[in-house]
Design a protein around this nucleic acid. Structure first.
Lengths: 212, 212
DNA sequence: CATTGTGAACTCATTCACAGCG
DNA sequence: CGCTGTGAATGAGTTCACAATG
């Protein structure tokens, strides 16, 4: 019985990692897994695994462990990835195109159903995935028509906020932002940032201090 | 005088954000900034900004604020990005190619000086940036010769660990991993992961719970 | 006198340790 | 008996609140 307690943000991140490992184990034919083994695979503490799962229910069998497929299904439901999610990519440079054709995303249920740009050379042309590139001012109609739930921003930094505002305006309230910009969003909206240079900065910092 | 206290990991991430905002402000001609303004720009608490900086020294002027350019220079030094860092990309699919040609990275001093793949169709050919694609078993020599410090992995997940091991073996101990794989690394080595699907999972989770 | 720098208070997250149970 | 589930203990990180000061 799910304790109604506040769930730590890092728990969600870890659930995603558990999910992937369970997927791999399932592939490899494993039927059961202990918190210890799953923890080892995800490089966390076994108690952490049990606590994380404990926020959402009792999924294990004492003395035995967790049923791999069953736990996978449970986490799928928790993360709400037991369904497809339509996405749209704005900014069809090299990075945007790479994401568009990235196998991983549709496999996991993230379908890119629309792409936007402002470059007149691109707008109107067809992507390798068979989508006609739309102008960002066509966003509102596209979002409604195609039931888009997540906006992915791969524009240059200078354009990112503008594009985000278009997305919000079109009724999207979840954004995955690849541009190195802090996006200002309304309270009702979510932004997840993926910023390479921040991660590289962390590496250089640690490389020059005595590691860790 | 830098207090010799343990520095929280999130502090480094935020320093990178401060750095970018200072860069932008510097561009826009601002000379001074208060912790309050910088905090607002980075969407954090002003006390957080002061505490973060406080770990490394006293950079401000009481009653006035911080000198934009000076603070920028200080953070540059802290993050060790006041110099160039040579990188290598392994896995020249669409994502790897996109990163290779990404303007942002060389601008910030991250120079890709070598690229690796295993595909015989790719090895030996020349990238748009003028690099001859090498086979991963040529890594050791390349790393020494070209003084590569950071390895970037953009291979499919199944190859990631193998490529990481090649990197470690070649004497690299910092890796930026774009494949959705938990990489096992020796204690002396650093891995930063950039995993889109985890971030998308966070969005879907939050979208289906009452936001946040 | 506005704003920094920082100990102290607080909030959030992880780990321990063991009771509960199949 | 072994492993889960969880309250209690610990640890990490953030925010408060105010003294220090240019």
């Amino acid at each position: 019985m799910p304790k109604l307690k506040k769930i730590p943000k890092p728990t969600i991140t870890r659930l995603s990692h558990y999910y992937r490992q369970l997927e791999l184990m399932s592939f490899d034919g494993y039927r059961m897994v202990s918190s210890e083994k799953l923890a080892w695979l995800c490089q966390v503490n076994p108690a952490q695994v049990r606590k994380d799962l404990g926020y959402f229910g009792e999924f294990g069998i004492r003395g035995v462990g967790y049923d791999v497929q069953q736990l996978q299904a449970q986490i799928k439901k928790i993360l709400a990835v037991n369904r497809d999610w339509n996405t749209a990519i704005a900014g069809l440079g090299r990075l945007g195109s790479a994401l568009l054709q990235h196998k991983n995303l549709p496999e996991r249920g993230f379908k890119c159903v629309a792409v936007f740009d402002v470059d007149p050379k691109k707008v109107g042309t067809v992507t390798p995935t068979g989508l006609v590139i739309k102008h960002i001012n066509e966003m509102k109609e596209a979002v409604e028509e195609l039931d888009i739930k997540i906006g992915i921003i791969t524009t240059p930094p200078a354009e990112a906020q503008k594009v985000a505002d278009y997305f919000f305006d079109a009724g999207i309230n979840a954004i995955l932002n690849f541009s190195p910009t802090r996006i200002q969003a309304p309270d009702c909206c979510l932004v997840e940032n993926i910023d390479f240079t921040v991660r590289l900065d962390i590496l250089t910092y640690k490389l020059t201090r005595g590691l860790n």
